[in-house]
Design a protein around this nucleic acid. Structure first.
Length: 497
RNA sequence: GCCCCCAUCGUCUAGGGGACCAGGACGUAGCCCUUUCAAGGCUAAGACCGGGGUUCGAAUCCCCGUGGGGGCACCA
């Protein structure tokens, strides 16, 4: 907040090749935070230069997920902006001119090698235990010959002409200077034979043209980071601030998430996909809080953050470069915290869909009365119909065995229930203040613990061993229905009076 | 095989030479509160990967191991 007063332009640049997961969510969140914190812009750019991997619907899912998290972008494919278009497939022509510039100035060259030859070369290198790299066959073809062959229509790609000597140093904000010997780098392809630029070129060009000030990306880009610095320098551009975020490891901490791990997780009611989390009953507030803290910390004790808090308090300097294992029990914890932080009426609105999908049709006014009773009893929204469904069901399925009080016989239980029925029946109105005291007195008279009597009543009225507070529940259910359920319970107990 | 990154409780982390017999959180166990379940409160167990340096002094700085992660595509 203090030092970062210059507005940052930050972009989240996913490729629409699959479902959006936690790692992407965190990168987007950090992007958003920096932009908002500095009064800059958060930009969404779709990196779809590889049409072979394009997944229909992925882009929509991505945008829905980001909006669900509350990360609204200022510029993007759907909202436009001063640097449109924001989809790389619509920017093909732009990259060509920079590739051409690199070739003309000797930083890149045409390569006519076939994929087959490349595969063969690689194979040989593997055999000799050499690092697999381009052998440089086309590197020294004269510019005139190359130009002629290109004009003749010969298939070709464009490669970056990596220097054979020297080294290059790029600066990562979290790790400091990273120096690599050029000889350990490859002559990377930057334009494919179909004329389309690869990430290495396209992303650099777009970041520069879109005046991006901070590049946040996964640490899987660290190995090609030196290439990107080379490209920036060859083009004579000023580099952005580079920040490579750590990866997320599977919950065990051993390795990154695999397809198999993802399946396993689903069986436990978890998911790494943003679009699943909503249906699982997680709050976007909790997800943001949770992922923000995976690789970032504010101090040694503050852990609860709203999006607004994060905008104010986030700082790149406090990012941790070490990989972090995903911990879903912590997500549950944050979800509970944020549920309790919600105004009850707001919570009521959020749990409504879960009642609907459970086949119940709650009256919203009534639901609003119930919400405070379950607010501190649920950790995910989908638990709401489980714990409070009885409020909206006409009939309960009662198990007579459950109706028997602790350390009591069925006859004793029936007798206690009968007595309670009479007391409640006599009440002009049913409320916690009117019902609790006489029932406690009853328990005492019958030589029962309050818990024994209340337990029987709880089962009779809610059908559940575990429920929201008994008297508050009875008040909302209403006297008529309460009396009806007690009668049904007495019938179920089926003990001759 | 080669290159790069990382390394504090099971997990997420605080710590940037003395304030540390290392603090917080999740989870776990116990207790309190209590009409159930929660929530809340209290307590407990639990870590500086190893070895060398530097220094009066190292979790903190350097080196070497080891371990973990990532990358080596006409994918991003």
């Amino acid at each position: 907040m203090k030092q970062n007063t210059t507005p940052a332009r930050v972009r989240f640049a996913p490729s629409p090749t699959g479902r959006t997961h936690l790692g992407s969510g965190r990168t987007a969140l950090y992007d958003y935070l920096i932009a908002r914190q500095t009064g800059g812009q958060f930009i969404l750019r779709i990196e779809d230069t590889d049409q072979k991997r394009y997944v229909p619907g992925a882009e929509q899912e991505l945008m829905d997920s980001l909006r669900w998290l509350g990360l609204e972008w200022d510029e993007g494919p759907d909202v436009g902006g001063p640097f449109a278009p924001y989809r790389q497939s619509e920017r093909k022509h732009i990259y060509q001119q920079y590739a051409q510039q690199l070739v003309n100035e000797g930083f890149a060259y045409y390569c006519f090698c076939s994929p087959e030859r490349l595969a063969h070369v690689r194979q040989e290198q593997q055999k000799r235990k050499e690092p697999p790299r381009y052998d440089g066959l086309c590197r020294n073809i004269g510019s005139e010959e190359a130009r002629r062959r290109v004009n003749d229509g010969e298939a070709h790609v464009i490669r970056f002409k990596m220097p054979h000597t020297g080294s290059i140093t790029g600066v990562d904000l979290l790790r400091g200077p990273i120096t690599v010997e050029n000889k350990n780098l490859d002559d990377y392809i930057i334009v494919k034979s179909d004329g389309l630029a690869l990430y290495h070129l396209a992303a650099m060009v777009d970041d520069h043209l879109m005046q991006i000030t901070h590049v946040l990306r996964g640490s899987e880009w660290l190995p090609t980071f030196p290439l990107h610095v080379h490209i920036y320098r060859a083009l004579g551009w000023q580099e952005p601030i580079w920040v490579h975020l750590s990866v997320f490891l599977k919950p065990s901490g051993k390795g990154k998430m695999s397809k198999r791990d993802t399946e396993l997780l689903k069986q436990d009611g978890f998911s790494i996909f943003l679009s699943d989390l909503k249906g699982l009953g997680y709050l976007p507030e909790a997800v943001n809080n949770w992922i923000a803290l995976m690789g970032w910390s504010y101090d040694d004790h503050t852990e609860f953050f709203t999006l607004e808090d994060l905008i104010e308090k986030f700082s790149l300097e406090r990012l941790n470069p070490a990989p972090a294992a995903i911990n879903f029990s912590k997500l549950d914890h944050f979800n509970g915290l944020h549920i309790r932080n919600l105004p009850p009426d707001n919570l009521a609105q959020r749990i409504l869909p879960f009642f609907l999908s459970a086949g119940l049709e709650p009256d919203f006014e009534r639901l609003k009365k119930i919400t405070p009773l379950i607010q501190e009893r649920i950790t995910t929204l989908d638990e709401a119909p489980e714990i409070a469904g009885f409020f909206f069901r006409e009939e309960l399925s009662l198990d007579p065995a459950e109706l028997v009080g602790k350390n009591m016989t069925p006859a004793e239980s029936a007798q206690a229930l009968k007595a309670a029925e009479q007391i409640l029946e006599a009440l002009p109105e049913l409320s916690p203040t009117s019902a609790e005291e006489p029932l406690r007195n009853l328990a005492e008279r019958l030589n029962l613990k309050a818990g024994q009597l209340f337990g029987i009543l709880r089962i009779a009225v809610t059908g559940q061993r575990v429920s929201p507070p008994l008297f508050e529940s009875m008040e909302i259910i209403g006297k008529d229905m309460v009396m009806k359920r007690i009668k049904q319970a007495l019938e179920a107990l089926d003990v001759p009076a």
